[in-house]
Write a protein that binds this DNA or RNA. Structure first.
Lengths: 231, 231
DNA sequence: TCAAAAGTGTTAATTCTACACCCATGT
DNA sequence: ACATGGGTGTAGAATTAACACTTTTGA
């Protein structure tokens, strides 16, 4: 066997939300070299004896103050040279989803933290540090796929939500409009996805018929890979 | 930030095949503590400056002599204490798929390497070392899911294959019989999955009408996540 | 000619899609 | 009343699922 090379393990957290019909990501502007002034996905080193999702949640809290969100592993990036510094860095990318953009502040490594339109950032991949354009692109692809297989969509909305809000998530992530009527039926026929609260709420514009409100059928579940039955 | 704790990064390779209608995994029997005499998923440390999939392919070759197979990342296991030894071990699990069980030999850490029925092993998880029962279970779940979304099934069969062979893969992984006629149409209607060679071959039993032979539509592709269009 | 496996045809059930239409609210 | 967004009905298209049936081979 070979000698174990020194390796640093980090967690990167792709934090997504949908705002004004667009998929947004929380990115930091790096305050130091390498890649000073470039955008980066928040992340940091895993502590000793700290589990990976715990580290991801801690980083998320440190960056945004947000607690109680679902964090799920995406994939791991370990190509040699992906970090130009001498030490090799293997990064376990995670996904966190928020119902709305939260106020953010810069951290130690970051001069500024803010929300960016994902589609726009991905058309300028050179603005991202390291291999973070690849990670962000992969994350978006995964989210697109998980929307149709899991209950992930419900973590993009608040605790109670209307089906139009939920539809807006799918439309933003998939980038195409969905038929409101068909969406309504589909979601309600899907077991283990939403439960009606019995309440209604007027739309934010104040116009139109009030919408029935729902909750996620599995509120406490932190595992995004809850399969939703289909047929 | 915190001091980087020393962490070892390994790759584990879940090697699967279908034999006699059953999903099989290549496992080694550990020759040393911890978990001496228990079954384990082959794996080893990542070399310095070695990319993760390269390490997985190398480990696969060292264990089995097999080259040229598709290797795809599954997920990463990093819970503290998953390896009882003092050094923390983060394992990036990969998947490799072979068309048939190959002759195997033990390696440095293994007194014996052999093929095991996956369903049977998973009913006795205590026979597996570390968290390898979890890894193997997750891997099987992933394979089940990827069979319907990607062209993964074609890596379970040889370079040329009949559609019954391919159907046998689905039946073994999903654990239920599929209608031969419907399967035939479905596969051929799916773009980018198989192409006819024009040849035929008699079934192994020598009975029945010879089957038309096919090749995978994307032979050189090492990325399992080739989406197969549906509709 | 028979058994076996490959492959085709056919039909009913189900699911998807488009879109017409009704409902409940504020102005 | 009317504009607006929520929600239901419905009919045709597309897909799935079940299974009868034909084809091609070796014995």
């Amino acid at each position: 066997m070979n000698a174990r090379p020194p390796v640093a393990v980090t967690v990167d957290v792709v934090i997504l939300t949908v705002h004004l019909g667009r998929l947004q990501a929380l990115l930091v502007t790096r305050a130091q070299d390498p890649f000073r002034d470039r955008l980066a996905i928040p992340g940091g080193f895993v502590d000793a004896d700290e589990d990976l999702p715990v580290a991801a949640v801690r980083e998320l809290e440190e960056e945004t103050g947000v607690t109680g969100v679902r964090v799920e592993q995406l994939r791991t990036y370990g190509a040699p040279g992906r970090d130009p510094r001498p030490e090799r860095v293997v990064s376990v990318a995670h996904l966190a989803v928020l119902p709305e953009p939260v106020a953010v502040r810069g951290g130690d490594d970051a001069s500024y933290a803010g929300w960016y339109d994902v589609a726009e950032v991905l058309t300028h991949p050179e603005r991202l540090a390291f291999d973070h354009a690849e990670i962000l692109g992969d994350a978006v692809e995964e989210v697109r796929s998980r929307l149709e297989r899991t209950s992930l969509a419900t973590s993009f909305v608040g605790e109670v939500f209307s089906l139009s809000e939920l539809r807006g998530v799918y439309e933003a992530v998939w980038g195409r409009p969905l038929d409101p009527g068909n969406f309504q039926r589909k979601v309600r026929q899907t077991e283990e996805l939403v439960v009606a609260t019995g309440e209604t709420r007027l739309s934010p514009t104040g116009k139109g018929r009030p919408a029935a409100l729902y909750r996620a059928a599995r509120p406490g579940v932190h595992d995004l890979n809850v399969p939703i039955t289909r047929g």
